[in-house]
């Protein structure tokens, strides 16, 4: 570890850029949220916290919050568990073709999310999509994947799971593979069975990694955009309208810049809280 006064030089290029693309707009957004500015009128006035008051009092607002949390926590938990299961499965010694399997399983993460969502939107098509066709062949009733509230939210979450499970998978796999086999050997000598090996050795060792993956995915899931924008735009009604999407819609479809900034600000505060926990967690390990 070095100590040097000129260390700041290392940071100046990136920090100056961030001042322009992050700090300045952020301040502007805070200011915007306190006005009634729109994108189609040149004049506006400063209205203090009226945007926030109206936002919190809006009946739909808490639905957006609920939807956002269901989405974010839902996909994060599913991706974590599925990723862990996949990592454990691939880690089983006797499995052949691990390299090939792994590269195939990584594919959805490398796909541009907009394209992945487009793919799933066509698959979900109620009329001519393959999913409903398969269902009808099996004698089941077709499902309105994107046309009914519960189904739409689930379908959209499924797209997220499809795209980002490989993230949890690959990191947990690396974590599992990093566990020295000797630890297992000595435990087996003591008579431990597979389940106990997992529960008392693998899991505790993986715990910090699990925590990390959880927090990373959780924070990022609040930013989810393509999975909803391309498929449902927030509908039907507002059943897939997360805070992120509502902010975008308010800005680009209703042109209400001030209100949109208020939504964005609120979302930001939520995620800020979560990333604080993340930093505290990583500093502990």
């Amino acid at each position: 570890m070095y100590k040097n006064r000129r260390v700041i030089l290392f940071f100046i290029p990136s920090l100056s850029l961030f001042a322009f693309i992050a700090l300045y707009p952020f301040g502007y957004a805070v200011y915007l949220s306190l006005t009634d500015a729109t994108l189609i009128s040149p004049t506006y006035s400063f209205i203090w916290f009226r945007n926030y008051v109206k936002m919190f009092l809006g009946a739909d607002f808490w639905v957006y919050v609920k939807t956002t949390f269901i989405y974010s926590f839902g996909v994060t938990f599913i991706e974590l568990f599925l990723g862990l299961a996949l990592a454990l499965a691939l880690n089983v010694t006797e499995v052949r073709g691990k390299k090939v399997l792994r590269s195939l399983m990584l594919l959805p993460l490398m796909l541009p999310p907009v394209i992945g969502t487009l793919m799933w939107t066509t698959i979900y098509e109620p009329e001519r999509g393959p999913l409903n066709f398969i269902l009808s062949q099996l004698g089941l009733r077709p499902i309105s994947w994107l046309g009914r509230p519960v189904e739409a939210l689930s379908s959209v979450m499924l797209i997220d799971v499809y795209l980002f499970t490989p993230f949890a998978f690959i990191i947990l796999l690396a974590g599992l593979q990093g566990i020295s086999p000797y630890i297992y050997e000595s435990a087996k000598l003591d008579g431990a069975g597979s389940w106990n090996l997992f529960r008392h050795i693998s899991l505790p060792i993986l715990n910090p990694t699990l925590m990390l993956v959880f927090l990373i995915r959780l924070a990022l899931s609040f930013q989810a955009f393509e999975t909803i924008y391309v498929s449902t735009r927030g509908g039907p009604a507002i059943s897939t309208m997360t805070l992120n999407l509502q902010s975008y819609t308010t800005y680009f479809r209703y042109y209400h810049a001030g209100k949109a900034a208020a939504y964005a600000m609120f979302l930001w505060i939520i995620v800020f809280g979560i990333s604080n926990i993340f930093m505290k967690q990583t500093r502990r390990t």
């Binding site: 109620p126 001519r128 309105s144 994107l146 046309g147 509908g235």
Partner: peptide, 18 residues
Amino acid sequence: PPGYLSFTWEDARSSFMS
């Protein structure tokens, strides 16, 4: 149809004629 709330104008156009 059950998928009505996700029908775009494109769905309406093409579904009516096939």
